[in-house]
Design a protein around this nucleic acid. Structure first.
Lengths: 213, 213
DNA sequence: AGGTGTGAATTAATTCACAGCA
DNA sequence: TGCTGTGAATTAATTCACACCT
């Protein structure tokens, strides 16, 4: 029924299941089988059932899963049943793009925008104003910021992460192409498109050489 | 000596090793042990040695690895010993940010920028001009485009991937928060920051509840 | 009959221990 | 002596088969 130890790949797949369920829900579909959900998420039906079974029993035998119910359950499991408070550090092009990204709205509140460049301080972005990095510690406390989004250059990433950790955030979403360290209890997820692109060149190269599939 | 079957996690780590080696090389370091390289890449020394051993023997027992040599070897393994030709489809904010991203220069040539919005056609970006999507098939052929970068909204992603595949690209770097399908022989890597952010909320939530580490 | 939930079997990835070479 | 390279052991993840419920 509950959690012995969840494979982290399972968590990644839960996000896909949730997206598939949101699509289905929007189309008015009320029930899915593991087979259908698997199809929509691009995995196998075994995988779907096993993944869900780590967290509980959400389906009905002989019937399938109720879409709105499973959607709600997955949201809760993934911690999306509340609004997280985020700050972005590094208001270059990427930081600004994120500040204006429409997909944030519902589940995330962008409540801080920081940069070290004096020329940027005071500029308006998304729903706020760019502040100096020195204002971070107080902002994290007074605005209850839980997650820091790091969009600074590679060289500055670890230093910014340190400051965020010091200020008291619980998690970090790192966009810099760097391996950053955090103490236990502070989680990091990295989004690294250059690494993705390089994996791609590797696989394409292998395939071209035809040495193995 | 050579490849029985490479764990895909190994390929991901090779990218980190290469970055660490580039840092070390820049600092003028000429030799590293697996211990030092592991430290720099944030993994264990066992891992480094095992990962490298899938591809060959690059070190000297009792001494370590020669930095410039290993760097070159990893570049070759990862397919970075040549310049790849890319096109970006979807010239919204993210597409434009990528078009101007300085990190592309050396190993990637951006040779096409496409959008479906007539208002965008003809605008200048990065090193080129935005063209209509209808011009894609010919461009892929005449400019030998190998990789398509997809920066369109979620709903349009699969359709654009289909067109890129049809046009003849070998790999796709997908930024849309969607699971996209390709036929065998065409590789996809997805870069999905919303998925990353959701994994983060999951882990932080678990930690807060304190049920398991 | 139909489809979930899960223990067992299989396969994959990581960790370890140490032989082997400079 | 020191550090790599790798088979063997361990641990983790995936796949499967089927008992079980509606």
């Amino acid at each position: 029924m509950a959690n012995p130890r969840i494979p982290s790949a399972t968590v990644t797949r839960l996000v896909r299941y949730l997206r598939a369920l949101e699509d289905l829900d929007q189309k008015g579909v009320e029930r899915v089988s593991s087979e259908q959900l698997a199809e929509a998420a691009g995995v196998t039906a075994f995988q779907v059932r096993k993944d869900l079974s780590y967290f509980g029993s959400y389906g009905t035998r002989g019937v399938g899963y109720a879409v709105p119910f499973l959607k709600r359950e997955l949201r809760q499991i993934l911690g999306l049943d509340r609004r997280w408070r985020l700050a972005i550090v590094g208001m270059g092009r990427l930081g600004q793009a994120l500040a204006d990204y429409p997909g944030f709205g519902e589940r995330f509140a962008l409540v801080g925008f920081f940069d070290i460049d004096p020329a940027k301080i005071g500029q308006k972005v998304g729903g706020g104003v760019i502040e100096p990095l020195a204002a971070l510690p107080q902002a994290v406390r007074t605005r209850a910021i839980e997650i820091g989004v790091v969009t600074v250059p590679r060289e500055a990433a670890q230093e910014v992460v340190n400051r965020l950790v010091q200020a008291g955030v619980r998690g970090i979403l790192n966009f810099a192409p760097a391996v950053v360290e955090t103490p236990p209890g502070v989680w990091v997820e990295s989004v690294d498109f250059l690494a993705g692109l390089t994996r791609l060149t590797y696989f394409v190269t292998q395939e071209v050489e035809g040495e193995w599939i």
